[in-house]
Design a protein around this nucleic acid. Structure first.
Length: 406
DNA sequence: GTTAGTTCAGTTGAAAGCAATATTATCGGCTAC
DNA sequence: AGCCGATAATATTGCTTTCAACTGAACTAACGA
């Protein structure tokens, strides 16, 4: 009897610990995780595969241009297809004729100049180049030699290619697409991934035509498709019964509103799970999802504010001060007055109103404030600034500022 | 009531200044021949 | 002699300022019925 009691007591504790466990494997909800199965993208994957297949016979496939909004699975599908391709090549003994280089241009610190992108490419071929010192065309030369050193088919994936072109122009693309004409032993195929559709129209026509020999579009997921994706991931990530279909549906619906972003859907689910865990709940509820959504929004705003340059923060602080005093119909002039004061108190050199005006519209495009130009007839023309952030967020921003700005 | 003109309070665009970085050219030292 | 890396010289950026033209509706005044 006593023995029995001991066992069941252990059982109880063990159960308790296990019961509280919400996640089975949390990292399957992160962006890094590559699922084996990618629902609702069969068509696109096949398309990519079909275009690249000739490479297995040593022929040069067309360059591909892929576009679709964030979180539509562009990078995922590309990487998936490429790894399958690589695998097949290896199994058929042509593995070392195939070389895949993947570069994410958005990781800007590492690749925001032509030089750095090239050096990154070269590094991934296993060669070292100095951080600085060499002229750019030397690097092209080196890259070219590297490629042509032996018979090989190289695929260069440029993810977030629009960010690259925004920063350094399409020169590099022109050079890269032309490199094939000089290569004797090798071939270079470029896959460009962008979430901006109009981006390709601003390219040099020559680059445009050669880069987009094939175009693949990734449409946004709709709520139902998101639901499928989430259901699948939930099975990996959460323990059984923790996440109900209703919760999944809610996450899917929320993310579908935001241009069908699967990344956001997964974030929602993950954060909702974390919140549930912290609150000691056994299951994830729809309220947790609501809280998660708020938290994600808040974090995003705070992140943007934190990364703003000091002057911009000053402007925002000035606006907050005005709002706090209950001012209505705040206009640029009002803000500028307060701003001058803020600068003085913080010993900063105030900018001109011209610049402040621009900063305000920047804050607007970030979605932190709401500024629109209105004409007040005889009383001129100005921006009217409003803030539609929740009290909670405003408070957090103020706390963020408190350490640095008065 | 309508129309034409004014006016305000910034907005917007272009050009130019300036400081911080990045890129290129040059030079001296070192190694190999 | 030829190569390498360091340093000076030059170019490019990114952020600002300066200048000036532009804006659009409230307000005014003149117009005409």
């Amino acid at each position: 009897m006593e023995f029995m009691a001991q066992i069941s007591l252990n059982e109880i504790f063990k159960n308790y610990i296990e019961k509280r466990k919400i996640f089975k494997q949390k990292d399957t909800l992160s962006i890094q995780f590559t699922p084996d199965n990618i629902p609702h993208r069969e068509k696109q994957i096949l398309q990519i595969g079909m275009i690249l297949a000739p490479i297995l016979r040593g022929e040069k496939p067309s360059n591909i241009f892929i576009y679709g909004k964030t979180g539509t699975g562009k990078s995922l599908c590309t990487q998936h297809t490429l790894s399958k391709l690589l695998e097949t090549a290896k199994n058929n003994g042509v593995g070392n004729e195939l070389k895949v280089v993947y570069i994410n241009c958005k990781m800007n610190k590492v690749s925001d100049t032509e030089y750095r992108v090239l050096s990154q490419i070269i590094t991934s071929f296993g060669e070292e180049v100095p951080f600085t010192g060499l002229p750019t065309n030397k690097l092209y030369q080196k890259f070219y030699n590297l490629l042509d050193a032996k018979k090989q088919n190289a695929i260069l994936v440029l993810d977030e290619i629009d960010a690259l072109v925004d920063k350094i122009g399409d020169n590099i693309l022109y050079n890269l697409t032309r490199i094939n004409q000089h290569l004797k032993n090798s071939k270079l195929t470029i896959i460009g991934i962008s979430n901006n559709i109009s981006f390709i129209n601003n390219l040099d026509p020559r680059v445009k035509s050669s880069l987009s020999e094939e175009e693949i579009i990734f449409p946004p997921y709709n709520a139902n498709e998101l639901k499928d994706i989430l259901t699948e991931r939930v099975a990996y990530a959460f323990n059984d019964g923790v996440v109900s279909p209703a919760v999944i549906a809610k996450c899917a619906a929320l993310a579908a509103q935001e241009h069908g972003d699967a990344r956001r859907a997964l974030d929602l689910l993950r954060v909702a799970g974390e919140i549930a865990e912290r609150m000691g709940s056994d299951i994830v509820t729809e309220e947790h999802v609501d809280t998660a959504e708020k938290k994600l929004d808040t974090d995003k705003v705070l992140e943007v504010v934190r990364n703003q340059p000091k002057q911009s923060q000053c402007v925002l602080l000035s606006i907050l001060k005005l709002v706090k005093n209950g001012a209505k119909g705040i206009q640029t002039g009002d803000i500028y007055d307060v701003y001058l004061d803020v600068c003085k108190k913080n010993h900063l050199k105030p900018l001109t109103q011209r610049r402040v005006s621009d900063l305000i519209s920047e804050l607007d495009t970030f979605g932190i404030v709401n500024a629109r130009v209105i004409s007040k007839g005889r009383y001129g023309r100005t921006r009217e600034i409003k803030i539609d952030l929740s009290k909670d967020v405003i408070e957090k921003i103020e706390r963020l500022f408190a350490a640095e700005l008065i």
